[in-house]
Design a protein around this nucleic acid. Sequence first.
DNA 1: ATGGTTGAGCGTCAA
Length: 265
Amino acid sequence: MRLVTWNINSLRLRAGLLPRLMADLAPDVICLQETKVPDELFPSDLPEALGLPYVAYRGMKSYNGVAILSRRPLRVLEATPDWCGKNDRRHVAVAIDAAGGPVEVHNFYVPAGGDVPDPDTNPKFAHKLKFIAEARDYFRMRSQFARLVLAGDLNIAPLENDVWSHRQLLDVVSHTPPETTALTAWLDTGFIDAVRRFVPADQKHFTWWSYRNRDWRASDRGRRLDHVWVSQDLTPALQRQVTLKQARDWPQTSDHVPVCVEFAL
DNA sequence: ATGGTTGAGCGTCAA
């Protein structure tokens, strides 16, 4: 089973890139973030055309929005928390048929947090920290969860080599100590960072490059904001990861690239 | 210190 996470930054604008994603990675599951489409306007023909006919989506106008597309049948997990009481379409969870029993897949779009890394003056940063604390508590309460994959744009680059310059980004939202500490506490509720199982911690690895660089590849000021975590019991099933850097050069593409993890499931 | 770019949708706000 191959699972991809991609912040697509408007599904309707970039739906035409998904066949390319299918051709390059042949995923069985795609988790999308920032779909920016209300549920009643979700492109209903798209999933079947891609060969991923089983879907779950939670969208809204203009902002946020998540979707899961699957080749295999799935069941939507309806009883998920309303994070920070905002009902802002940042999480959808499903159970997908797999060898050995269903796998629970959680797709998250964590708040970006604005520009100023101070929860007292910046409500967006306060929201981000609160969201992560709630998510940590939710998974901590579900002790010993198993056969579970968590994927998405978590909007935090936790390790030194998840950013182009650790020193220069310590005060930049996405890499500040309160954020990286909080994300690690969430991870430590029972997850393994799947991509870092394959990419050593001393090696730079990014999934996002700002639109505001003339030449994103030359300046290479990237960050690893997109993640795939798995419950401990799934680590023996991990086969490989592919971060599709070439997608950053697709026409009219997202500022995030797809991240794929393959499982023996 | 500032600016740089993009999306949604029509004035800005969010990223």
